[in-house]
Amino acid sequence: MSLADRLLVMVLFGVVGLSFAAFWTPGGPATEAEIRVGGELVATLDLSHPGEHHIEGHQGISVLRVEPGRLRFVESPCRNRVCIHRGWLNTAGDSSACLPNRVSVSLRGSGAGAVDAVNH
């Protein structure tokens, strides 16, 4: 390696370091979501297609909103709001459920850094 090589490689290491500082968060992005009612798979949503999905549960309709790469409960017939308090889900391996309505979502994805479960 010449002197110029060494300088260049140092600069490149700096660039990679900066990119870590700017963008790195562990946890892989989810690409799809499996929707279950009472444990039975009813739909698989592609998270690159934004939209709202109305899922018929045991007590009524749960509304899921999909934006690129993420998903959340926006409405559900439950009154305890646990599913809505969960907020946006965007990590592969994460999951959430509206228990009273028996509707659950599980995020899947296989990018580098995907997790197997989210502790909460």
Binding site: P26, G27, D116, A117, N119, H120
Partner: peptide, 9 residues
């Protein structure tokens, strides 16, 4: 060949 990975919310 890898461990289980757990994210902490």
């Amino acid at each position: 060949d890898g461990p289980w990975r757990i994210g902490v919310r």
